[in-house]
Design a protein around this nucleic acid. Structure first.
Lengths: 194, 194, 194, 194
DNA sequence: GATGAATGAGCGTTCATTCAT
DNA sequence: CATGAATGAACGCTCATTCAT
């Protein structure tokens, strides 16, 4: 039980931080407020995270580790390119809609100086979370199924709309349903396919 | 002359704020630093703008007012839907690439709590800067040229990729040229057209 | 008058810092307390001093600049070695006794990591405030009036007792008067002379 | 065995505290760090010492209790005053040089608000560790061998230089050897003798 | 009107001390 | 008895805002 409690505390902090950062952004989520929402002393956070930056970075990694399995569930590299793209796109969009806090946090993260650094890592091939997408695109180009764009632009054509649509849904500007989700991802496909 | 000077100061402040916010984000741009860069006393800013939030909001409106004429230059409501879309999309993308500070500021703005508020105004029909796009999309749907999506999703399918591509270009992850710009916008069109 | 006020503020801060550090040591003198004692806002200190370390360093330099003229008043390089030593020693001791806050601050300073650094500068010949003493000692050795010790030891034999005596006086363990001051310095002389 | 262990823990704490305070000063030696270096839980320290101040005070007393026997080894009240002074002075100086951590701790201690309190106890006759010195000085004065100074000043003339010289040696500004040690103490004698 | 010195609430972080296990 | 996770007051410092000049 003591181990369980310990985990509880850390998870409470993570949860509180995610919520507050998602709601108010990095600068609207002071450590004291995170502590309060987590029902924890201000100093306690520092037992688990060296400082605020580290807390945020770990939050991000937590999130990635949580997202990928969900998105890749049922994914098979053997299916046709289009079907795989639709799978990934709809899974991502569904995840965002079902986990709006996660989505908002990711948005905040990618807009921080810290996010830019991470993005650079990705572009240099360091991160491998996106490998599924990369492989999919590279294969699609090789087979002349996809337009011959730089990978970065294919990413933008695919994820740009999904992020925008997810944000609008979360802010209440559209109400997505399963049909709209699929149609939207299919529209993305139309954008990148030859 | 005093009126002219006053305008000069106001514009210096706006310019300085835009630069600093674009470069370092909202929280890396203290009022004192803005004042210094604008060659103005710290208190002077408050003669022109009630507080920092108001300054930022006006900055945003300035920017919109500056962008639309540029984007709409040469735009004709008489041309075919596709051609009009390509005109608007490429003009927007070109504007972002040629005015990276403006783009960075807009990104920062849209990610602030303030940005969400503004977006809500738009959806309620308060803002009319996007009317050209709205008309284009509504007409396209009516003529069965575009997919029958909620307007909001058409917006996302169009601007989501453009913003993402512009960011990648500005961060140096792709180098866009005129051809890639057109191709990218054409890909967006493929996404929204029937 | 505005210039005078400005100086007043800075001097209030310096005075308050000196008092509090002398009374309670560096760590017993938080910036907030210094500000309060100086009748100044907490942030005001940072208009005049970049941070606490700089404040302390400037305090020290202020003090040196204030002390040397007082100690050297009436000092003449032409007088006999002994007389010059007595002059310097008694002047120093008198200064300490008449300015107990200055003395206590210097003690705190020399015991800080910062003080050690400064001491190292001195030993390497960077600081020239002590040149009078150095010259006196070097000349005394050359003329075979003083014992042939490393300079550093001559310093210790001279200032060690003076500092200790001054501390005891300030703490109330002895009550020095003019006669005792002179006798004490003469005893120091007996220690270093051949 | 339990009693032995308990003693072990206490001594480990004392040793760790001495090291860290000597190395980094009082404020560079947090309780948690002391506990870690002592291989002891943070809370354990509080079983042996009521709080940090008490720990430090006991550390000081430990040190005195450890020093006096060493310094008094071979000391005989029957020998001539001068010889006894030289014995005590050189023994003290040697002790400082051979136990730099002890010396540094003592310096830190004497400069804390706590140190002053202790000193006051001494002057009121509470402490009796210095009795040897007191007796030596009183006897020397009575026999007209020493200058007729208040005891406190004789102390200062004797220990002031020794402490200063020890500090310089430990900081590397001089390198003392047996000869210099003796000469230095003899110089102190010259200072206090008639 | 313009200034910039002054303010103080609020930030991220540390650390002496406590107490449930 | 020993532990070390938890605490929260206190620290040094920043910066949006005010106001006397």
């Amino acid at each position: 039980m003591s181990k369980h409690d310990k985990h509880d505390k850390r998870e409470e902090i993570v949860r509180a931080a995610l919520e507050l950062i998602a709601e108010h952004g990095f600068h609207g989520a002071p450590m004291a407020m995170i502590a309060e929402r987590a029902n924890v002393g201000a100093g306690t956070i520092y037992r688990y995270f060296e400082n605020k930056d580290v807390l945020i970075a770990e939050l991000y990694q937590n999130l990635e580790a949580k997202m990928y399995p969900v998105i890749l569930e049922g994914y098979s590299a053997d299916k046709p390119t289009r079907e795989r793209f639709i799978h990934l796109g709809t899974a991502l969009l569904r995840y965002f809609i079902e986990n709006p806090l996660d989505f908002r946090f990711l948005e905040q993260f990618h807009n921080s100086p810290f996010g830019a650094e991470h993005r650079r890592d990705k572009i240099l091939g360091v991160k491998d979370g996106c490998d599924v997408f990369r492989e999919l695109f590279e294969e699609g180009i090789a087979r002349q199924i996809l337009k011959e764009f730089p990978l970065s632009i294919l990413f933008s054509l695919s994820f740009g709309p999904l992020a925008a649509v997810a944000r609008d849904h979360i802010l209440g500007f559209v109400v997505l349903n399963e049909v709209l989700i699929v149609w939207t991802v299919e529209a993305c496909w139309d954008g990148i396919k030859r």
